[in-house]
Write a protein that binds this DNA or RNA. Sequence first.
DNA 1: GTATATGCAAAGGGTTTGCACGGTT
DNA 2: AACCGTGCAAACCCTTTGCATATAC
Lengths: 149, 149
Amino acid sequence: MAEAWEQRLREHGFRITPQRQLVLEAVEYLRHGTPEEILAEVQRTATGVNLSTVYRTLEVLEDVGLVTHAHIGHGAPTYHAVDEELHIHLVCDRCRKVLSVPADTALTFTTSLAKDFGFATDIAHVSVHGLCSNCQSLPRDVPAEIDHH
Amino acid sequence: MAEAWEQRLREHGFRITPQRQLVLEAVEYLRHGTPEEILAEVQRTATGVNLSTVYRTLEVLEDVGLVTHAHIGHGAPTYHAVDEELHIHLVCDRCRKVLSVPADTALTFTTSLAKDFGFATDIAHVSVHGLCSNCQSLPRDVPAEIDHH
DNA sequence: GTATATGCAAAGGGTTTGCACGGTT
DNA sequence: AACCGTGCAAACCCTTTGCATATAC
């Protein structure tokens, strides 16, 4: 029997290619990865793979439900394999640290958005910004952006 | 007595310039505006103003607490005057429509982030993505992105 | 054999930066 | 007079696209 991911691609009319396999494996291995990071990982095996292929491949893999992405900072999005536990990223606007918390922390929130506005929330898609516990206790006008990653 | 906004700038060691006044007025007038839109509005009065000045000015105005910004789509951020009612943007990933809901809809959510993780949430900074009530009732594989604005 | 995927290079949107000039204090 | 703010142009990051070639089916 073919691997599940091959099945998924074929079902949606896509072809099986080495690039698609490698990108998917890189996302699974990295657990959190930007397109650039995924490319770097893929190129450890296949140096010839191109960034635009990574972009196109991630789009396809997302289409068929094998990966998802989330926006962390203002920069490149982060991709996850779908079998990762669904989580929300809390981004500290001062120190830039990212905290992952279970998606169902937002359950009452998403429930009321559904009830009051009929809106079906994809809570993990976009990060929640704010200040982490550490940075809240710091003096006000201390330089932000301690860690740019 | 000087206007409040002039006070604000001076307090933080910034100078008063026509550009800063015009950008602030444009943000207040537009209520929701991207840097480009703000520039267009400013240029109705002063054609010579430059985009990079708008960016730099918005940063200053945000620094001193006269404006805030929120990320709606993947594109340019939207600026608001601080006296606007604080609201969350709900973005439909299919039709791209944006729904504004009161920020305190998220009160139980932000409260539990504070209690459980010590995180002080800035809920209005980033939009919540998902599907609006209309698009949920549509068939699955209908082309998305009906309205690119 | 035919349609789809890929690599490459170029273009695109949004934003930031270096620099010289001009305006505010 | 000193410094800050501005305009301009170039550079920047991330992403998308056109096209010819290669590959999966």
